[in-house]
Lab assay of single mutants.
Amino acid sequence: GMDVRRLKVNELREELQRRGLDTRGLKAELAERLQAALSGPSSG
């Protein structure tokens, strides 16, 4: 899988935006949010 901790802030935001998620917050928050999205149930 993707290691969200290795991504830069702008990369985290890009991935979040692609999934329609909130791109605001600290890098740690963005990484946590993206990780949750990646490990969560895949819809679609």
Rank of each mutant, 00 (worst) to 15 (best):
G1W: 07
G1T: 11
G1C: 15
G1D: 11
G1F: 08
G1S: 12
G1P: 13
G1L: 11
M2E: 06
M2I: 15
D3S: 07
D3P: 06
D3R: 08
D3N: 10
D3Y: 04
D3Q: 09
D3V: 08
D3M: 07
V4S: 04
V4Q: 03
V4Y: 04
V4R: 04
V4I: 11
V4T: 07
V4F: 05
V4W: 04
R5Y: 07
R5S: 14
R5N: 13
R5T: 13
R6W: 07
R6K: 14
R6M: 10
R6E: 09
R6S: 12
R6G: 10
L7H: 03
L7R: 03
L7W: 06
L7E: 02
L7D: 02
L7F: 05
K8N: 15
K8W: 01
K8I: 05
K8Q: 10
K8E: 14
K8P: 08
V9A: 07
V9L: 13
V9G: 03
V9Y: 11
V9Q: 05
V9I: 14
N10P: 09
N10V: 10
N10T: 13
N10W: 09
N10D: 14
N10E: 15
N10C: 13
E11L: 04
E11V: 06
E11R: 05
E11P: 00
E11T: 05
E11K: 05
E11W: 05
L12Y: 00
L12Q: 00
L12P: 00
L12E: 01
L12I: 08
L12M: 06
R13Y: 06
R13W: 05
R13N: 02
R13T: 05
E14Q: 11
E14G: 06
E14W: 10
E14R: 14
E14S: 09
E14I: 10
E14P: 00
E14C: 11
E14H: 10
E14T: 09
E14Y: 10
L16N: 01
L16Y: 00
L16V: 02
L16Q: 01
L16I: 02
Q17S: 12
Q17Y: 10
Q17P: 00
Q17H: 14
Q17K: 15
Q17F: 11
Q17L: 12
R18P: 01
R18D: 06
R18G: 05
R18M: 07
R18A: 09
R18E: 06
R19N: 05
R19L: 15
R19F: 04
R19E: 04
R19A: 05
R19Q: 05
R19D: 04
G20Q: 04
G20F: 02
G20K: 03
G20N: 06
G20Y: 01
L21D: 03
L21I: 08
L21K: 05
L21H: 05
L21Q: 06
L21A: 05
D22Q: 07
D22S: 08
D22W: 00
D22L: 04
D22P: 14
T23R: 02
T23L: 00
T23M: 02
T23H: 08
T23V: 07
T23W: 05
R24S: 15
R24A: 15
R24N: 15
R24F: 05
R24E: 15
R24Q: 15
R24Y: 04
R24K: 15
G25R: 01
G25F: 00
G25P: 00
G25V: 00
G25A: 01
G25N: 01
L26D: 15
L26E: 15
L26Q: 15
L26Y: 07
L26A: 15
K27G: 06
K27Q: 11
K27T: 08
K27L: 13
K27Y: 13
A28Y: 09
A28C: 12
A28M: 07
A28H: 15
A28D: 14
A28V: 09
A28W: 14
A28I: 08
A28P: 10
A28L: 06
A28F: 08
E29S: 05
E29P: 01
E29A: 09
E29G: 03
E29V: 09
E29H: 06
E29D: 09
L30H: 00
L30P: 00
L30V: 01
L30E: 02
L30T: 01
L30R: 00
L30A: 01
A31M: 15
A31T: 08
A31F: 08
A31E: 14
A31D: 03
A31N: 03
A31Y: 07
E32N: 09
E32L: 09
E32V: 09
R33I: 02
R33V: 02
R33P: 01
R33A: 03
R33F: 02
R33K: 03
R33L: 03
L34K: 00
L34A: 01
L34T: 00
L34Q: 00
L34H: 00
L34V: 01
L34P: 01
Q35D: 07
Q35H: 10
Q35W: 08
Q35A: 12
Q35V: 10
Q35S: 10
Q35Y: 08
Q35E: 13
A36H: 11
A36W: 05
A36S: 09
A36F: 05
A36Q: 12
A36L: 10
A36P: 02
A37T: 05
A37D: 05
A37K: 03
L38P: 02
L38K: 04
L38D: 03
L38G: 03
L38T: 06
S39E: 12
S39Y: 10
S39D: 14
S39L: 14
S39T: 14
S39I: 11
G40D: 11
G40Y: 09
G40P: 11
G40H: 11
G40F: 08
P41D: 14
P41I: 14
P41T: 14
P41S: 14
P41N: 14
S42R: 10
S42Q: 13
S42Y: 04
S42G: 13
S42A: 13
S42W: 02
S42I: 13
S42V: 13
S42P: 11
S42M: 10
S43R: 10
S43V: 12
S43Q: 12
S43I: 13
S43L: 13
S43N: 13
G44Q: 13
G44N: 13
G44F: 10
